Simulated assay, not measured.
Amino acid sequence: MNFDGIDPHWIWLIAAAVLGIAELLMPGVFLIWLAAAAAVTGFAALLLGMPLAFQFALFALLAIAAVYVGRRWYASNPVESSDPLLNDRAARLIGETVTVVTAIEGGHGRVRVGDGVWSARGPDAEVGTRVRVVGAEGTCLKVETLGIPQQPTN
């Protein structure tokens, strides 16, 4: 692509439009911040007639600032979800009852969850013991033994 004869501010504005369209086609709320930085750089180049090296420096600074502001804004305005634990499988397992497949000794063992096996931490338990998931640290589940009801004595 040959940009001879095109003023740099038009290239920045075209880049902003392309990034904005790309954001619409591939939503992820990232490219829009770069599009904003390119648009501001384009308007600044149009109004101030800056050298090309300064335009690139301005775009770099604006892109960093825009992404930073965008991340902070989204962190303080979370998107509501009907299933907030959708992508946190370990958190979804809290409260589930699972079976010990590798004895929990010294606080470490493995448990069966569905058709998979997860690392587990908790009180010592023999193979086959049913335990409840009470938390998770990464991919390691924290478990506790289930209370065994007392048998009535006659």
Rank of each mutant, 00 (worst) to 15 (best):
V18E: 07
P8C: 11
A16D: 01
A39G: 08
V133N: 05
V18P: 05
A38Q: 03
Y68R: 12
T99I: 03
L25Y: 04
P78M: 04
A37I: 01
G106L: 00
L86S: 14
I94K: 06
V134P: 01
L48N: 01
V117Y: 08
W10L: 12
T102N: 10
S82M: 15
E23D: 02
A38F: 05
I11A: 09
G70L: 05
T102I: 14
E137S: 09
G95F: 06
H108L: 15
L141A: 00
R112M: 13
A136T: 02
A45E: 12
L46Q: 11
V98R: 02
E96H: 14
D7R: 11
D4G: 10
K142I: 14
V40E: 04
W33H: 01
E80M: 07
V101Q: 00
G20P: 09
L93S: 02
K142M: 14
Q151T: 15
I104W: 00
V134R: 04
P51Q: 13
T129P: 02
Y74H: 09
E137M: 11
G70W: 00
Q150Y: 12
G138T: 03
A16Q: 04
A136L: 06
N87G: 12
L93D: 02
W12L: 00
E80T: 04
Q55S: 09
A37N: 06
I11N: 08
E80G: 00
S82R: 15
L47H: 05
T99V: 06
A125F: 01
R130N: 12
V131C: 06
A65K: 06
L47P: 08
R132L: 08
V143R: 06
G116P: 02
P27V: 01
G20I: 09
